[in-house]
């Protein structure tokens, strides 16, 4: 049983890494610097529903570290970690209320991801003025979170059907 679990988590991590890789190859450019689709978050949302919270946060953190070393740099790891962890804890908290579906949870994750990254950016450049990007990033987070939520929901329903 334990081995099966480890194999599953490894497959999820590989899937998340591939999502990061695909995204680094095809920039889903929305016209605003720093706005990305965040494909790897599909895996985090799916894991939150199928594998559990602890597993999801583990794989998310490992994915950020590995993809940072492979395709990014120290800075991108810092930004991704802030966004990834904040968005995970917000999604987990919203899911715990058991009042909302997958799509709004993913939307909350998208927004908090951008808030986390912007906060780190403010600390790094030591200039609070870049908070004027906040509205754009909020809208972008809602849009990308919605798209990721729709995709993750379809996968989760199909996984539940086959299991």
């Amino acid at each position: 049983m334990r081995n099966k679990r480890i194999a599953f988590l490894g497959a999820f991590l590989a899937l998340a890494l591939i999502c990061s890789y695909v995204e680094s190859l095809i920039p889903f450019y929305f016209g605003i610097p720093g706005v990305k689709l965040g494909l790897a978050n599909i895996v985090v949302v799916i894991m939150l529903y199928t594998a559990g919270a602890k597993e999801a946060v583990c794989i998310s953190t490992l994915r950020i570290l590995l993809s940072g070393f492979l395709f990014g740099n120290m800075f991108s790891i810092l930004y991704s970690l802030a966004g990834g962890l904040l968005s995970f804890f917000v999604m987990y908290a919203v899911k715990r209320t058991k009042k909302f579906g997958i799509i709004p949870i993913s939307v909350c994750g998208g927004i908090s991801h951008n808030i986390g990254q912007l906060s780190v950016a403010v600390l790094v450049v030591e200039n609070y003025r870049i908070y004027s990007y906040l509205p754009v990033l909020l809208f972008a987070g809602i849009l990308t979170g919605f798209l990721i939520g729709v995709a993750a929901q379809e996968v989760i329903f199909r996984i539940h059907k086959t299991m």
């Binding site: 579906g101 799509i103 939307v107 909020l138 809208f139």
Partner: peptide
């Protein structure tokens, strides 16, 4: 069962409204 309920819609609408106000 439900893919996108009324509550889901309200939460996203509230978030959109909040983003709009901040903007």
């Amino acid at each position: 069962k439900k893919r996108f309920g009324k509550r889901d819609f309200i939460l996203i609408a509230v978030l959109l409204a909040a983003a709009f106000v901040i903007w």
